[in-house]
Design a protein around this nucleic acid. Sequence first.
DNA 1: CTGAAAGCGCTTACAG
DNA 2: CTGAAAGCGCTTACAG
Lengths: 342, 342
Amino acid sequence: MTKTQQTKSRASGRVTLAAVAQLAGVATMTASRAITQPDLVSETLRTRVEQAVAELGYVPNRAARALASAESKVIAVLVPSLSNAVFTEVLAGIQDALDADNYQILIGNTRYSDAEEEKLLGIYLQSNPDGILLSGLNHSPRVQQMLTSSRVPIVSMMDMSTDPAQLSVGFSQVQAGQAMTRYLIDKGHRRIGFIGAQLDERTLKRADGYRQAMREAGLADPRLELMVPDPSTIALGAELVERMLAQAPDCDAVFCCNDDLAHGAIYQCQRLGIAVPGQLAICGFNDLPASAWINPSVTTVATPRYQIGFEAATLLRAVIKGETPAATQIDLGFTLMARESA
Amino acid sequence: MTKTQQTKSRASGRVTLAAVAQLAGVATMTASRAITQPDLVSETLRTRVEQAVAELGYVPNRAARALASAESKVIAVLVPSLSNAVFTEVLAGIQDALDADNYQILIGNTRYSDAEEEKLLGIYLQSNPDGILLSGLNHSPRVQQMLTSSRVPIVSMMDMSTDPAQLSVGFSQVQAGQAMTRYLIDKGHRRIGFIGAQLDERTLKRADGYRQAMREAGLADPRLELMVPDPSTIALGAELVERMLAQAPDCDAVFCCNDDLAHGAIYQCQRLGIAVPGQLAICGFNDLPASAWINPSVTTVATPRYQIGFEAATLLRAVIKGETPAATQIDLGFTLMARESA
DNA sequence: CTGAAAGCGCTTACAG
DNA sequence: CTGAAAGCGCTTACAG
C-alpha cells in the first residue's frame, strides 16, 4: 500500500482506478468494467475489485470519465427564477425523474434575463451536457444559435410548442388565461381588469388569452389592462390593485397574472376596506399553497409544475438514450380552482 | 478548413483547441494561454487566436481542463430545501458572490435527509469540487468522513460553529430563539407556546433558545411545547395552532419556528374567530415577504440569508485561492421585527 | 514571448 | 471473461 513514486508527476494524490486495479490484481480496464458494467465481469474478480474500492475509498473522477467516454452524465436546467415556487417544484419533478441515473443536474437561474441565460448556457455547454431542459419557447437569437450548434437534445418546459420538431411539456398558457377570464364573465363580471408583471413569455400569453375572451364577449377595453415589467411580488400586487382602481374605477374583477400579485391585492383590499369578492373579485394564477388558506381563499388556476418537470426530464432521458418518443408534445393541462375570492 | 482525417478515432466532432491553434497558426499551448492567460501572449498572436475561436465557434471542454489542471472550477452547495424561500435567497447570494469567476455551481437539494445528503455529496465529490458550501453544522458520520478524506475546503452556513477550525457564516439560532421569547415575555405573556416542525438542527436550536428564556423567567412548562417532524407548511401551522390550544387552553402566545407555520396559524385563527393578537399572540421566524402584508402583519425574526450566502461564498473563494481569512466565524446577526401579530 | 512532449484518469475498440 | 494500447482535449513543467 506504500507505492508513492511520484517524482515530478502531476498526479492529484487521489486514489485512481489504476491503484484499485493493482490492489485487486487485475487490469485497469477490468476494474473499470467491474464498476460500470459489473455483469460483464466474473464474480470472483468483481468481488476483488469491490473490496479494493472499499479499502482504498476510491471515488471515480468524473472529468476523466466524461473525457474518455461520449457522455458527460450532465443535464443542464435553465429556469428564470428560484424565488418563484413554480420553478422550484419543476426542479423537484426533474430531480425525482432523474434520481437513479447518477446524473449531475446543473441548475441555472437566469433571473428572467436573456444576457444571463446566454452566459449560463455558455458555461454549461463547456460541460458538454447530454441534454438541456429549458423554460419557455422564446429565446434570444444568440441562445438559439448556441443551442443549434451544440446539437444537444433539448426539451422545453411550461408551454406547448407549435413546432412538431421541438419537444415540449407543459400546458397552453393562452387557453388557461382564456379559461379564467371566461369564468369571471360567466360569474357576471363585465369590467374585468388584468394585472401583469415581469412581462415574461407566460404572462404575455395569459394576457393574450384574457384579451381573446374579453373580445369574444364584447368586453374588451385597453384601459382595463395594467402591465408592468417589475418582478411579481406581494408588495407589487398591493400597489397595482390600487392603480387599477384609479385607472378604471368601475372595475369589478381583477385577474392577476400570478398568485403573488393576487395575494398582495387581497391584503391591500383588506386594508382599504374593499370587500373581496363583494366589491371586487380577485383571482390569481398557479395555485400556490397559501392560496387555499388566505381569507378569502383565492380563486386561481392550478398548474402541474411538478409533473411538467418530471415528464420533461423523463422525455429528455428517453431521447438521450436514443429512443423515439411516442409524443413530442405533452400537454399536461390545468385546473381552474374556484374558491372564495372570485 | 477541411481536415477530416478521422479514421477510427474517438473524436467527439466538437471543435478542439488544436483546431483553433492550427487555424491561428500557433502551437496548441499558445492558443491555450491566449485564452486563459491572455497577458502572457503577444497582441498579434492573441488576436489571431481570438479570431480563430470566433470563426470556429470554439467551446472549451471543461472535463479536459479539469483533468489536466488541478482545479475543477466547481463549487458544490448543499441545501436542505428549495421550496423554503430562505435557501433560495442563500443561493442568490452565492450566485452573486461567485458571478464573475466562471464557477460551475452544483446545487444539491438534500430534502432534510441524511441519506440524500450522502448520495449527493458522493456524486459531487466525483467532480472534484474546489470547495463545498454546507447548510448547518450537524452531519452524519458518513458525510463527515467523506468530507474529511476529500480534503476539500468547506464553509458551513446558517449557524455559528464553536470549533475555530470550522469556517462558518450565519447567526446564532439559539440566541434568536431566546430573543423572540424574551420579547413575548416582556410584552406580558406568560403562557407562551412553541410550535416546531421538521425538527431540523435550526428548529431544535430555536427551541433551545425558547426553553432557556422560559426557564430564566420561571415560566417553563413542557406542555407548552409542540414538536412534530413533518415539513413546515401553512396547512401544518393551521393544524398545530389548534392542537396547541387543545393541549394548553390557557396559552396566550405562540412562537412558531418559522413563518410558514405562523401564517397558517393566523389564517386558522381568522377562521375560528380567535383575535390575533388580542386573544392569542402569534409570531414566526425568518421574515418571509408575506409577513409584512398579512393582516395582522406578522411579528418575526428577520434573518440575513442573502448575506449568509454571499459572505460564505466569498469566504470560500478566498480559502480556495490560498488566502488566510481574517475571521473564520462570521456572525451576521438577526433582527427582531415587531409587528401587529404579537 | 513561444513551443514540443508528457501527462491528467478514465474508456473505447480490438484481440484473445 | 480478461487485457495491452491508444486516445479523449486540455494544461503543466521545462526549454529556448
